[in-house]
């Protein structure tokens, strides 16, 4: 996993609540057996005017000019601003894969769906929860100022706005440590293999019917 430390990135606003995983990456693109290459199909049904097919080269497809991420001013955005309950729906990790492959490294919103939130951290994508008021202000500033950027510092747990104001955000210490270092959590867990084996042996003795 790519480590995440500090990002100074362009911000794009997606002013919708309940953006679901089917919107982030429609199911016809889940047939790939790889982890990469989902970016061109991120938000496919909102982003293009035609119906996309898996495996299709998206570079020549007609873009929907009304979709906010297609506006020239948001090209190259690495920070996505969004509303409540982003990532609701499926557990498909293709959703964070698509966002990461599109170029996003940070998502900012008032709330995220649980499974999506968890999946994001596993892929070097930092979801940040701020208060509804803070998110409202970011939307207003972002929409009013072309080239609007934010500086996200994971170690300090801060977001710095262009006007100099600094916002603090919360993140679990364990997730933070993993993301800062780009650690593979399987490797971390396997350090406790003896404890897992001991637990398993005890469980097997107490409840043999779970081990049939």
């Amino acid at each position: 996993m790519k480590p995440f430390t500090i990002l100074d990135g362009l911000v794009a606003p997606l002013d919708r609540a309940n953006v679901d995983t089917d919107a982030i990456i429609p199911k016809q693109f889940l047939k790939s057996i790889k982890r990469s290459g989902f970016g061109p199909n991120a938000f496919d049904e909102w982003r293009y005017l035609d119906v996309g097919q898996p495996g299709q080269d998206c570079s020549g497809r007609p873009l929907n000019p009304d979709f906010v991420l297609n506006q020239p001013r948001y090209q190259g955005a690495q920070i996505l601003l969004t509303r409540d309950n982003f990532g609701c729906g499926s557990s498909r990790e293709h959703a964070p894969w698509a966002l990461e492959d599109y170029g996003f490294r940070v998502l900012i919103g008032p709330s995220f769906a649980d499974i999506f939130y968890n999946n994001s951290f596993k892929n070097g994508l930092l979801p940040i929860r701020l208060t509804a008021v803070e998110v409202d202000e970011l939307f207003a500033q972002c929409e009013a100022n072309e080239g609007y950027r934010l500086v996200v510092d994971l170690a300090a747990q801060t977001i710095t706005r262009p006007d100099g104001k600094t916002l603090h955000f919360e993140v679990d210490p364990f997730r933070k440590e993993c993301l800062l270092n780009g650690w593979d959590d399987i490797g971390l867990t396997l350090r406790h293999a003896d404890e897992i084996r001991a637990f398993e042996a005890k469980r097997r003795a107490e409840h043999p019917y779970y081990f049939a």
Binding site: R35, R92, I115, N118, N119, K122, T189, L190, A193, E200
Partner: peptide, 21 residues
């Protein structure tokens, strides 16, 4: 019982455990 992402599928395959809060 709950859904997990693919990284967690791999984690469960490899360790028989999940990291959870």
């Amino acid at each position: 019982a709950h859904g997990i992402g693919t990284s967690e599928v791999e984690h469960v395959l490899a360790t028989q455990c999940l990291l959870q809060k």
